[in-house]
């Protein structure tokens, strides 16, 4: 639980850092995405597989722990009470299950791009790769073309329910982390009275940083700070070229 949790805790921070490049402009985030995708396939798929295995093990351990705990108390109290356990700690299973459903949707939406009506691979035109203000060129002298992650993110978050689900999910992630991060230290035995409060505060701060960082993007899109030509427009722009190819 703790070790797979640690991997995922660090992953979300890196993921958030990468996503925030959207505020540095279209070229910055597209160049970042291009770099990730141009990693050698074994490395890219190795990392993806490793993360999926961590998610899988994290869930599997959670299921084992839950089943063991259910078995350990076959007859429950008629009157239940909680003395001090935090809301976050008591709702880890709930926040975890909702997060899992979000992760599945999120990967289908932005990584696999297979959500009906949101197949960005066919809806978006490729854009030239720009790094440090310069358009990168192939040896032939043509610009290197790359997938337009920026427009995909903006178009994705312009759909209100996508943004809403996203913000709720990262809110639950914040909740999950405020218990998870401090719990992780306890489980591997690196916590004591002196460090307990510091670690609790660290977990709280970490959860909030992750929440604010991730939630900033859909919020900025919804209030119009981040904008892109509407998806329909780019599709419309494609139509003349498609007609042109058909006419040929």
């Amino acid at each position: 639980m703790a070790l797979t949790g640690l991997v995922l805790v660090l992953f979300v921070l890196g993921h958030m850092g990468g996503n925030l490049l959207i505020f540095a402009g279209q070229d910055a985030i597209n160049a970042y995405a291009y770099q990730l995708h141009s990693l050698p396939a074994p490395v890219l798929w190795g990392i993806r597989a490793f993360l999926l295995v961590c998610v899988g093990l994290h869930i599997w351990m959670a299921v084992l722990l839950t089943l063991a705990s259910r078995k350990a108390r076959p007859e429950d109290y008629r009157q239940k009470a909680t003395v001090q356990a935090t809301y976050a700690s008591r709702t880890m299973r709930m926040s975890g299950v909702i997060l899992l459903s979000f992760i599945i949707f999120h990967i289908a939406h932005y990584t696999a791009r297979i959500i009906p009506g949101k197949e960005y691979n066919t809806q978006l035109t490729e854009v030239p790769l720009v790094q440090g203000g310069e358009t990168m060129l192939k040896q032939s002298g043509d610009p290197i073309m790359t997938f337009d992650v920026y427009t995909m993110m903006v178009a994705g978050f312009q759909v209100w329910w996508v943004s809403l689900f996203y913000i709720i999910a990262v809110g639950l992630l914040c909740l999950h982390l405020t218990h998870g991060v401090t719990s992780m230290f306890q489980t591997i035995g690196l916590r004591n009275k002196r460090w307990e409060n510091r670690l609790n505060r660290l977990a709280l701060a970490y959860g909030w940083i992750i929440f604010l960082g991730f939630a900033a993007i859909p919020t900025a899109v919804l209030i119009g700070i981040l904008d892109a030509p509407a998806l329909t427009a780019s599709v419309a722009a494609e139509i003349p070229t498609q007609i042109a190819t058909l006419e040929k």
């Binding site: 063991a68 350990a72 356990a85 306890q186």
Partner: peptide, 11 residues
């Protein structure tokens, strides 16, 4: 003995 697992509630 069949005790449950610790999830750090602190109760």
């Amino acid at each position: 003995a069949g005790f449950g697992s610790c999830t750090n509630y602190g109760e």
